[in-house]
Amino acid sequence: MINNWVRIKSGYGPSVEEIYKDRIGSYAKFYKMDPLSRLGFVASELLLDAEGSRDREWGETRGVVLMNATSSLADDRNYQRTIVGDDAFPSPSLFVYTLPNVVTGEIAIRNRYYGETNFFVLPGADPEQMSKVIEMSFCDDKLQSLLTGWIDCEDEEHYDALMFIANRTVCGRRAELAEEIAALFEKEIKY
C-alpha cells in the first residue's frame, strides 16, 4: 500500500542541514524553522520529489497528519533557555515553533495543501496505533492522499523521521498497513 517513503535518522548519513543543502537548497524559510520543522520539511521535499507530482494542485484532497512521542521538545528546550536567568529575553521566533503541528503547517504552505493537518503525540512508535490514526484521517471523505508518518526530534543530534504517502486503499486494511509500517521501521535510511 505504501509506494513512496523516506527515512531520515540521526547517526545514519548526512545531517538534515546537509541533505537540505545537497538536495533542496532554495527555500530561505528553512533557516527560520526549528529542528522538528526542518526535519519534516526536508523529509516531505524528498518524498514529493520521489512521488513526482509537484505541479499538481491538490487543494483539499491532500492532508498532512504526523505523529511522534516528543512533541516539539527540541524547540521547547531552546525557548525555555530564553526565559530563565538574569539576561532572559523570551524569543517570539522560538515560541511560535513550540507546537508540534507547526511542521504540518510548513508543509501545507510549501505545497498549497488545504486538506486536514493534524498532529498526534503517542506513547511510542507503535505501527498499530499509527495505522489507526491514518485510517481515522480517511474518514474525511474529501481526503484522497495523506502525507503521514513518524517524525520525532528530541534535539539536533537525536531524530527519526519515517514519512510516507498513504491513499484511500488503506481503508479497511489496518492490519496490513500496520505490518507495512513495521517493516519500514526495520529498514535504516532511504531518501
Partner: peptide, 27 residues
C-alpha cells in the same frame, strides 16, 4: 518527564485503563 504521552498514560492509568492513549496536539 514532560512528554504528553506519559501524561496521557498517567490520566488513563488512574482509571485502570491500559489502552495506548492518543494525544491530539494541534495548537
Amino acid at each position: 518527564s514532560p512528554l504528553l504521552g506519559d501524561s496521557a498514560k498517567v490520566v488513563a492509568g488512574y482509571f485502570g485503563n491500559t489502552v495506548p492513549p492518543m494525544v491530539v496536539s494541534n495548537a
